[in-house]
Simulated assay, not measured.
Amino acid sequence: MKKVLLVAALLGAFALTGCGNRQVIDTNWTFTKAKIVIGNETIEVNVKSWRDYQNDTQIQIVADDGTVYLTDKVNVLLIGK
């Protein structure tokens, strides 16, 4: 009986994930500050919102003052509470 339940659980997991190629749980991360490297300078901003792009290395950060920063993820340090 345990083997049947295990096989059913595995098949259900594969069905939910499209044969293991998709994210089952969408996690939301909240960040309050970001350190962004621009040239030789590092700035710190308060984060209003942010977005990363699937299958890409870009990230967009909207600061509290409305300034939008679009850069590569390697240039950003997001800081939580």
Results as ranks from 00 to 15, higher is better:
V37L: 09
L5W: 08
N55W: 08
N21I: 09
T67W: 02
K2N: 15
V62I: 08
L11F: 09
D52H: 11
D64E: 14
I25A: 12
Q23I: 11
T17R: 01
L70A: 01
I25Q: 13
L77R: 13
V47Y: 05
I59A: 08
L78V: 05
I25E: 10
V47M: 05
T27W: 03
K35Y: 01
L16A: 14
R51A: 14
N28C: 06
Q58F: 10
K73R: 14
C19V: 12
G66M: 04
D72C: 07
A63K: 05
W29Y: 15
D64L: 08
I25W: 07
K73N: 08
K2Q: 07
V62C: 02
A15T: 12
L16G: 01
Y69R: 04
I43C: 09
A8M: 12
G80N: 09
I61G: 01
V4C: 01
T30W: 06
M1A: 13
V45N: 00
V68C: 00
A15K: 12
K33Y: 05
G12E: 02
K3I: 07
V24R: 14
F31C: 00
K35F: 05
N46P: 04
C19P: 05
L77E: 13
I25T: 11
D65S: 04
F14T: 14
N21Q: 15
G12D: 00
L78N: 02
Q54H: 11
R22I: 01
R51N: 06
K73V: 09
V24Y: 15
Y53M: 06
L77F: 06
D52M: 10
V4I: 15
T17E: 00
I59P: 10
I25P: 08
R22C: 10
D52S: 10
K2Y: 13
I79N: 08
F14R: 02
G20H: 04
D52G: 12
V76E: 03
D56Y: 12
E41F: 06
N28F: 15
G66R: 10
G18K: 07
I59S: 04
T57A: 12
D26F: 07
T32L: 06
L16E: 11
G18R: 00
I59Q: 04
I61V: 11
T71I: 05
L11M: 05
K48G: 00
M1N: 15
W50I: 00
L77V: 11
N21M: 10
N21D: 12
Q60P: 04
D26Q: 13
V74C: 04
D26E: 15
N75I: 09
